[in-house]
Design a protein around this nucleic acid. Structure first.
Length: 623
DNA sequence: GCCGTTTTCGGCCCGACTGTTTTCAGTCG
């Protein structure tokens, strides 16, 4: 396992950083790249976020904790590394970072640790951080129970809920204890989040259940699904209906056979747990309030905060019911919103144009849509061909002909076939002899399509392993025989970041590489990808004309959309690739496009929006 | 802890729901 090597190699200066892995296993693990202490923005953000969490658990002023959250988010979404601001002491120029947090960051770069974080970690047990995952447990309750009962572990908490100690605390009761126990049981059975495709299918089921019921005038999925986030916590459904129709709709919702538990129910909101272990929230608002509510419940929280602040600055107030004019004293009649009929209307009154939901993450979109009409994001219908697919020649389930026919059925005009290269022996990777045999089969299939007047092409590609030293898996005289090459890392994903950096740099700068495949190798909610800063890789790829894939498999969705700003600035090309191992796998394209949109790619920067002739010309020019 | 051209102090986004309370604190999104 990589971390063991990592600890041995860097132990003297790494202890404090490694501990944060133990603290927050689901978060990014800051890693020192060199002995001269270099930290990525992600590293810094993770540490500041941890300070925020620990401050709350330590009973600190909430606004102080919020300041650390904000600083973390701001740094995470900066395009330029904070490390360049250290020497000149320019960190306070970042909005939201004052002297105190700046000093923390300077200390990190100079000593490898943040004193405030060290002392917080000593004060607050890491076990308490886990308590926050319990539904209904926030920092205040965690602090109270921990202090008053003197317990820190999940096991102790369970015992104290069972023996009545928790219920006897002031402000707590039997229901509180019961709820905690139930939530712990769910936590132990189900993961906190699920993949986008899983959430989407539950949401689709709920939409189908409700959309044709009497009284439903509008319905939409909201929340992180609408924002195309790659993993989802809760599923949000919003309905526009008159209040008189709401009770029957809630009844339909909560009595669905897919619902195993009702978590809460009021006049406008109901929450349930489904058989899949997921929480679904249904909210019903008046039809006239639907656009404001949709905007509100789509979020993100950070985007909403930015919009509400903007409204305030302009003498208005924004909430889920609409936009309200404030008088000089800052008060308003919440019965009388400023007229609106759509989300676009509300944005317009805030002096900006409509923001596509997938961009609502407070990563520059408020500014962008103040200055620009629209973003021209790539659409699923723009995609003209499938690149990155496997056949029975390696580990795919179907023949080349079957895969080609499946692409044709779906309206695509080419298939870039990319079976595994020889090093991927576990996946039936092709040796040189089989590569040449496969080329013959592809030629024959293309001839048959041409003869039958079918305008479809199969391109000869390969998913070449990137070897440990960054070289590709065949000699140049074989490599040049392919139409295009996807270069991917499949082994030693856990090598030190510095070595992985060299490996990927060599691969993207190799003239034979057309596309870098799944750049980190992550499997969502299952395996972290390589710990490598992709920013320089993106720059180098853009410069070399090499695309970086957005792998559309919902387990991967790698390139991560968070690199979108960097990719856009660098002019990076991508290809949205299903990495299909079966004909059904081709349909994963939809998830890749969702992520490409979220990463701000327009049609022109997505290779497989090109026509057959255009993509062929691109492959030729690349060689 | 951060911020500011009404501010260097006093705010910091806001409403629904829950469970515990006889009026509210905490959580959630």
């Amino acid at each position: 396992m990589y971390f063991e090597g990592f600890i041995n190699e860097f132990r003297p200066v790494q202890d404090s950083i490694y501990e944060s892995l133990l603290y927050l296993p689901s978060r990014c693990v800051p890693e020192k790249l060199q002995s001269d202490m270099n930290y990525t923005n992600k590293d810094i953000a993770a540490l500041l976020e941890e300070i925020g969490i620990l401050l709350r658990l330590d009973g600190a002023n909430d606004f102080k904790a919020i300041a650390f959250d904000r600083a973390a988010r701001t740094i995470e979404s900066l395009d330029e590394p904070v490390s360049t601001l250290i020497d000149d002491r320019q960190v306070t120029n970042i909005k939201g970072i004052g002297k105190s947090i700046a000093d923390d960051i300077y200390a990190l770069f100079e000593t490898g640790e943040i004193p405030a974080l060290i002392s917080l970690r000593k004060k607050v047990s890491e076990d308490l951080v886990r308590w926050l995952d319990i539904s209904g447990m926030g920092p205040k309750k965690v602090y109270k129970i921990h202090k008053e009962l003197g317990i820190t572990t999940l096991e102790e908490l369970k015992a104290k809920c069972e023996d009545g100690s928790v219920a006897s605390l002031a402000g707590m009761g039997a229901k509180s204890a019961e709820k905690i126990l139930k939530s712990i049981a769910w936590m132990e059975q189900y993961a906190e989040r699920c993949r986008l495709d899983e959430a989407q299918s539950i949401a689709d089921r709920m939409l189908a259940l409700l959309e044709h019921k009497p009284g439903v005038k509008e319905i939409s999925v909201a929340g992180s699904i609408r924002r195309n986030l790659e993993t989802i916590g809760d599923i949000d459904i919003l309905v526009g209906a008159d209040a008189s129709d709401a009770p029957a709709l809630f009844e339909t919702f909560t009595s669905d056979p897919g619902v195993v538990e009702i978590l809460g129910q009021g006049e406008t909101k109901s929450s349930v747990r489904t058989t899949e272990g997921r929480q679904v929230d249904l909210r019903i608002v008046k039809p006239s309030q639907f656009p404001a509510a949709l905007m509100y419940f789509t979020g993100s929280k950070e985007h909403n905060v930015a919009l509400r602040q903007r409204a305030r600055d302009q003498g208005m107030a924004l909430n889920e019911y609409g936009l309200f004019k404030l008088d000089e004293k800052g008060s308003t009649d919440f019965e009388k919103p400023i007229d609106y009929t759509s989300e676009a209307d509300i944005y317009k009154k805030l002096g900006m144009s409509w923001v596509p939901p997938e961009l609502r993450e407070d990563r520059g979109e408020v500014d962008f849509f103040t200055k620009n009409e629209k973003a021209d994001l790539v659409e699923l219908s723009d995609i003209q061909g499938v690149l990155h697919a496997h056949s029975t020649w390696s580990d795919g389930k179907y023949s080349i002909q079957e895969m080609a026919d499946a692409c044709l059925d779906r309206g695509y005009s080419y298939l870039g076939l990319t079976d595994h290269s020889r090093t991927a022996a576990y996946a039936g990777g092709l040796d040189v002899g089989r590569v040449q045999q496969q080329w013959k089969e592809i030629d024959a299939i293309n001839e048959k399509f041409a003869k039958n007047g079918v305008n479809f092409r199969v391109f000869k590609g390969i998913e070449s392993d990137i070897l440990a030293d960054g070289s590709l898996d065949y000699s140049d005289d074989i490599l040049k025989g392919f139409d295009f090459i996807i270069a991917s890392v499949h082994f030693s994903l856990d090598m030190p970041a510095e070595k992985m950096h060299e490996r990927l740099m060599r691969a993207v700068e190799n003239p034979y590489t057309t596309i870098l495949g799944h750049p980190t190798g992550r499997l969502l909610l299952k395996r972290d990808g390589s710990k490598v800063d992709l920013n320089p890789i993106i720059e180098a790829a853009a410069k070399a004309g090499t695309a970086i894939e957005i792998n559309a498999n919902p387990w991967r969705l790698d390139l991560d959309w968070r690199y979108g700003n960097k990719a856009k600035d660098a002019g990076l090309l991508t290809a949205v690739c299903p990495d299909a191992h079966s004909t059904e796998g081709i349909d994963d394209m939809q998830f890749g496009v969702k992520i490409a949109r979220k990463a701000k790619f327009d049609k022109a920067r997505v290779l497989n929006t090109k026509s057959v002739d255009e993509i062929e010309a691109h492959f030729r020019a690349e060689k």
